[in-house]
Design a protein around this nucleic acid. Sequence first.
RNA 1: GGCGCGGUAGCCAAGUGGUAAGGCCGAGGUCUGCAAAACCUCUAUGCGCCGGUUCAAUUCCGGCCCGCGCCUCCA
Length: 458
Amino acid sequence: MPIRLHDSLSRELRELRRPDPLNPQDVFSFYNCGPTVYAPAHIGNFRTFVVNDVLRRLLELEFGPDKVKHVRNLTDVDDRTIGQSKKEGHPLGEITKKWTNLFHADCDALNCLRPHVEPTATGHIREQVDMIEVLMRKGNAYRAADGSVYFKISSFPGYGALSRIKERELKVTNSAFDSDHKNDIGDFALWKAFKPEDDGDVKWSGPDGAAAGRPGWHIECSAMIKKHLGETIDLHTGGVDLLFPHHENEIAQSQCCNGTTFARHWYHSEHLLVEGTTMSKSKGNYYTLGDLVAKGYSPMAVRYALLMGHPRKQLNFTLDTVHAAEKALASLRAHRAALAPAAAVHEAFAPVIAALQDDLNTPAALGALFTIINRKEGQPDATSFDRAMFALGLDLTAPTTSAKAETPGAVTVLAEKRWAAKQSKDFAAADALRKELAAAGWSMLDGKDGYKLEPLKK
RNA sequence: GGCGCGGUAGCCAAGUGGUAAGGCCGAGGUCUGCAAAACCUCUAUGCGCCGGUUCAAUUCCGGCCCGCGCCUCCA
């Protein structure tokens, strides 16, 4: 069954290209815009990366693990990274390394497969400069008075196709425009001239005829895609917010530079909302993975929660959502353990994969999963179940409560006392101690030969 | 103002021109000193509102109301 995916450019459901099975060199090229490493990524960011991870897994299942090349970049130089570097008083490279490490740890905890290549903007300055020089030679870019280089959108007739920018009335506040050096409000920076007051010591020598400085944001993706995946790629993805201007600008740069179609297929995942609105620190609804883990939720439950909504619809994330996810996951673990190796029904969980192949319908896939599990007749096969788990990226062996909070000594004392009371059948005392533990925020789970302590949720 | 998306049970959320998946919560039950877990059963005569098309609409069309996102560097 082919994978059908919504294409942001044509706005239609289209089949993904299948690599030529007769040509071993032919692989499906997949680029996913990655994070800017200047702060911890929040769960909204991770929604996009988790959705893309499901896509990656689906592509591997469908085409074969060696027939997919997945590239995701790290933006390690821009206003925000430089700003953070100045704020913390550490070199840019040190700052971006720190946040890259956390990003990787979070991705691992969320069971996201590592991309095959994870290029950085600072690692590809030469490639970016090369492209800018080509664009200048071809008349698609010009040098501004301060030595910056801008892309001239009027030189690219196809500009705006992705975002339908021409049909918009730009809400223009001219203040930003006036302080710039561009000829047209829509022109964007390919190369930004060095400004000592803003940029600290971050600069590279620029394209011929331009000042020293650093690349603009959009060019990095164009350059890294060209280097690692080629001039035309099969699939380019990201969050909806990247549609304009980022992806629009990438198309303009790449197509003017290379003279070829940039991406055959575009896919954008929608935003995550928290308690019905966008995340922001001031609203107190801004969550990182670490925040949720600190509240006692497991990363796998967060992943599950992020898959509970259709990727192309805004998903309203609440703590109840993660709680529901945690419970659902526990149920899946129990069912997996009960599956017999010898199965009566093979490929029982194929509908789960089918739902994903139909425009990455993750909530329908999860629904199908439980529908099959709840069926009374027939014993489904574990192999098929595991395949579905792989596609969704749900690792049922992952710890249920990660990074368990330290148990306070006083709580341990109470627990020991209660266990002793229980062993001596003094149930009244045991119950009283259970209440004390609950008051302290802990729950005691009795086992046959011992107990476990868990912090109460929320 | 422009572009786009959405309004389905207490919460989250699929879906279909023929009468509403699934998860959570809740209720009842089995089991267990208690709790937890597990298992069983139940939980939307209705899918924002008003019209229209149709034998039949939550699903198509029109209008209205409400919410959300984007509109130059935010996944």
